[in-house]
Design a protein around this nucleic acid. Structure first.
Length: 115
DNA sequence: GTTTTGACGGTCT
DNA sequence: TAGACCGCCAAAA
């Protein structure tokens, strides 16, 4: 199983429940990547991978990656469609909709296995 | 092979 | 409290 750092990010991102969001640092810390940038980079390639990258925002709850989407507003629309309120390109009640990785997943199944 | 950038986070000033 | 800098690893030019 090719468990590259972005593959792990894909798994966690896909594991994010509907109506929930998470941030790069949480995923990076969960996967022990060491850098939130790796997560953003992995999600940068998510196009066509079926990865709900729109559920991943920065620590401030801002849709930092909206500019990378086909349409900057698409990300907001998708989040609102999932029941997440967006105001000024930011997630309303971010802490309430924040999804903590690892607390609902088996890290043993997501962390670097046997390579 | 080297340099710069990248959807970030945390800490220092 | 707000702004600036550094750190992280990887890929593309």
């Amino acid at each position: 199983m090719s468990n590259t750092y972005f593959t792990l990010v894909y798994r966690v991102t896909q594991a994010i429940p509907t109506g929930r969001v998470t941030n790069y640092g949480a995923i990076a810390d969960f996967l022990a990547l060491g850098s939130a940038r790796m997560v953003g980079w992995a999600l940068n390639k998510c196009h066509g991978k079926g990865v709900p990258a729109h559920r991943v925002v920065n620590s401030k709850g801002e849709l930092s990656g909206r500019n990378m989407f086909p349409s900057p507003t698409m990300m907001q629309e998708m989040l609102e469609q999932e029941g997440i309120e967006i105001n000024n390109d930011k997630v309303v009640k971010f802490k309430e909709v924040f999804w903590h990785p690892g607390e609902h997943l088996d890290q043993d199944d997501y962390d670097y296995p046997h390579e």
